[in-house]
């Protein structure tokens, strides 16, 4: 059972002369939410399309241990997805869409449960051509989870969702994850990803530049102590002399490790009769960490040129 639900090995994809995926390899553990982040055009959607057999690519993809490809993808019955934008037949109602794609036993119960889970009851029987972007998005997500797949691939699922719907989606993903469903989610809304993702894949120019757990990424990112003192200018001098790394901020802001002790800092300042009025901790969030990673990758690339 330790076999990853999704394993991608040496995946390459080119559009003509332009290579958009370079030797992409990663694995997704069962029951995890994996965030896929990267700039526009980094290759997130192409990667997801290759996994789903929508586009050709070279390399190996295994879902639940079974190989899958552009031509042969029987194992995709264990996968649900929403790619790019929700696919909607305007001449059908939302419920018709669910009936159309529901498979296996207990369809009616699953349709009713999905409608309830995503709070679609109000408009599910109306023609889909009248749906707002958010309604279509929710219907697209409903179709992705309808058949209780083992793996759900969601491309920007928060697009068009209002704050309430965002919260409901977050709760739904957490509930499904607890039941063993794996999610691979790409999103630019990093704050939302930070709240739900266990693991993180950072992709840049078609390459995976970081594969890590969310906890490790955040722990490795910088922590800062922001001090308010009776004499900030003097405090800066004292702390610099004591060997602390300060930022450009006019407040004495110290970059520290996760286990830095406060006592020596306070001692150094009180020695110079500087009173500490307030201390704030500031941890970098996912956005800071990802931007830093992407900036580092960019610098490396420029260095290679």
């Amino acid at each position: 059972m330790n076999q990853p639900i999704l394993a991608v090995h040496q995946l390459n994809k080119s559009f003509g002369a332009k290579q958009v995926l370079h030797d992409v390899s990663f694995a997704c553990q069962r029951g995890h939410v994996i965030g896929l982040v990267g700039a526009n055009g980094a290759g997130k959607t192409t990667l997801m399309k290759a996994i789903l057999g929508l586009t050709t690519a070279t390399g190996q993809i295994r879902i639940d241990g079974q190989p899958t490809s552009f031509d042969h993808h029987e194992v995709l019955h264990e996968v649900g997805a929403l790619i790019e934008y929700p696919s909607i037949y305007p001449f059908m109602s939302g419920r018709d869409h669910l009936k159309l794609f529901a498979k296996g036993p207990h369809r009616r119960q699953r349709i009713d449960r999905t409608i309830a889970d995503l709070h679609l009851t109000k408009y599910i029987d109306r023609p889909a051509k009248g749906y707002s972007l958010g309604m279509k998005q929710k219907l697209g997500i409903a179709l992705a989870i309808l058949n209780d797949p083992k793996l759900v691939v969601l491309d920007e699922p928060m697009n068009g969702l209002d704050p309430q719907a965002n919260k409901e989606l977050r709760e739904l993903i957490i509930t499904k994850r607890q039941a063993g469903t794996t999610f691979l989610i790409s999103s630019h809304i990093l704050g939302e990803l930070q709240r739900i993702a266990d693991d993180l894949l950072v992709i840049d120019h078609g390459k995976i530049v970081k594969q890590t757990t969310m906890a490790d990424l955040l722990a490795a990112s910088s922590h800062q102590l922001i001090l308010s003192t009776s004499d900030d200018a003097m405090a800066r001098k004292v702390l610099t002399k004591a060997g602390y790394l300060l930022t450009e901020d006019p407040k004495p802001t110290i970059r520290v490790g996760a286990k830095t002790q406060l006592e020596p800092i306070l001692d150094a300042l009180s020695h110079q009769q500087i009173t500490v009025l307030d201390i704030q901790h500031h941890d970098a969030d996912l956005e800071d960490s990802v931007l830093k990673l992407l900036a580092q990758d960019q610098l490396q690339k420029e260095g290679q040129i």
């Binding site: 929508l54 993808h73 996968v79 790619i83 909607i88």
Partner: peptide, 14 residues
Amino acid sequence: YGTVKEIIYQQYSR
């Protein structure tokens, strides 16, 4: 309508 994606990523061949 973009529904071709929905159809293809089912388990069936093209």
